[in-house]
Design a protein around this nucleic acid. Structure first.
Lengths: 141, 141
DNA sequence: CGCCATAGTAACCATTTCTATTACAGCGGG
DNA sequence: CCCGCTGTAATAGAAATGGTTACTATGGCG
């Protein structure tokens, strides 16, 4: 299956929010974020809703509402983002239970699950090494 | 998105083929493999077709046809399998081009691509550390 | 030479997922 | 009370996935 782009959307939104904050605008509407990401404001509200539930951004409603980073950009890693919006297995196990009368069918699932978990942990560790502040720094050279 | 299970199907097929080989049957039909995986023989033929194109298995057609490992199970890693059947990005970039007039939109793609590549490389390295022979050993305890 | 088991593959289907869109209810500051 | 904006439901189209049927191609064997 094609991987989804939610981590990318969310990371883009956060980096843009951090740049806006440095320019004096700590709060952005979903429409302003959507204009940079080039997508629909509802997509942004959904993504940022995931980030809000994970405690990465705060939202205000009513007049003058919008989204703001809930903590310093240097303390939000891409792993935080990935966990908030896409905490799915990178490789799936069998759709249907394998034949348990075959020794391989009976024993393969926990073995593969462990290998996949280790590989996913290595993947996550790399994401944990990059914060939104790091990403923004590299964007701005 | 739900990840696909093709790596699991292919790894299962290969482990089962290696166990059959040790029991004296170096060649299995798609139906025999499908019976262990508990899926349709066509699914197995498609998966093993990917592995054949990658040089991991050999096939024979005609009467008495079937699939066999093309090299020792200890020399087929899960990375070989993953590359053969699922060489897709683990995280997608934007579906639509971001707004290039925004500094973040203009510069974020190569930065995220590099981070994703590094994380994927760590993921791949873990898969490279496990061969089909290793997996089968762990299945059989 | 023809039979036949089996790989290879096309076509189709149901299901799921993803992005996008419209619509509207809820909140809360002015 | 009004209005701008979030939150979210409903819907739709596109794409991927696993599954199924059906057909062609291959090649060993009688």
């Amino acid at each position: 299956m094609a991987a989804n782009s939610r981590v990318t959307i969310a990371a883009h939104a956060l980096a843009w929010m951090e740049l806006a904050r440095r320019r004096g605008r700590a709060q952005l509407t979903s429409e302003e974020v959507a204009a940079s990401v080039n997508t629909n404001p509802v997509i942004v509200r959904r993504s940022l809703g995931d980030l809000r539930r994970a405690g990465l951004v705060s939202t205000r409603r009513g007049t003058g509402a919008g989204f703001a980073l809930a903590r310093p950009a240097s303390e939000i890693t891409l792993l935080d983002v990935w966990t908030a919006v896409a905490a799915e297995p990178l490789i799936a196990l069998h759709h249907t239970e394998p034949n348990l009368e075959c020794p391989v069918g009976a024993g393969i699932r926990p073995v593969l699950a462990e290998v996949y978990d280790e590989a996913t942990a290595a993947f996550r560790a790399k994401l944990a090494g990059q914060s939104i502040a790091d990403v923004l720094e590299r964007i701005l050279q």
